[in-house]
Design a binder for these strands. Structure first.
Lengths: 112, 112
DNA sequence: CTAAGATACCTTGTAATGCAAAGTACTGGG
DNA sequence: CCCAGTACTTTGCATTACAAGGTATCTTAG
């Protein structure tokens, strides 16, 4: 047990949320997402992101289009589907509730 | 993919944190913890909690003492060890950082 | 044309762990 | 003695983040 494992653990729970949120702002491809997450100190590696994007796409939350690049192979630009947007809204609520729940738990007075 | 799975997913990440926090306030036994989490809308079941408590104990973050009950089998009352308290402090920081990171990610303007 | 390097996407194997469900054990009432 | 209630434990399964390695495309240098 170490603090790194805990951080990773906490990250897991909000990864999908953050990714959907990033994609909702503009069409991006994998490296953009990695960069944005890194900026926010949410470290994620390729091996985590790609399968996750595929999963979200298979669930109908995302779609993508290929776009040529001037410096390498074509990229998959992801966008939110209507369903994805609806889902993101629900996740906003879920996140708020979680923050409230944690705050309650970690700050409430002893009862008895 | 459904919103319930996402909630469950998010919950996972903060479970240990919340449990340590609850125990830090007073010595409690499993059912107390379940009740407190339930109040905060963090649904957890026995099969999740018990192994987790055992893990935290094996990691030296918790200790416990048996206490007789007037209405059933004896109870394990858990308390934080010194190491557990230190760990909890780190988790406080980790949680704050995560909230900041998510807030940043989900509210930041489009860059480019 | 070829080789090398950069970029981008994908796959495989592993370990961790939340959860459902079932099991064990202690207590007191009828 | 049996049953209901309480408390703790165990087993099997499914999910999934991550590390590591693989494949494919494009550009540039020679």
């Amino acid at each position: 047990m170490n603090i790194e494992r805990v951080k990773s653990q906490m990250r897991k729970g909000v990864l999908e949320y953050c990714i959907l949120s990033i994609i909702s702002k503009e069409e991006v491809y994998a490296s953009d997402i990695l960069a944005t997450l890194k900026e926010a100190k949410l470290i994620v590696v390729e091996g985590t992101l790609y399968p996750l994007l595929t999963r979200l796409k298979n669930d109908g939350l995302l779609n993508y289009r290929w776009e040529e690049s001037t410096s390498g192979p074509p990229r998959k630009y992801y966008g939110l589907t209507e369903m994805g947007q609806k889902f993101l809204t629900e996740m906003d609520t879920t996140w708020d509730e979680l923050v409230t729940a944690v705050t309650t738990t970690t700050t409430s007075k002893t009862k008895k």
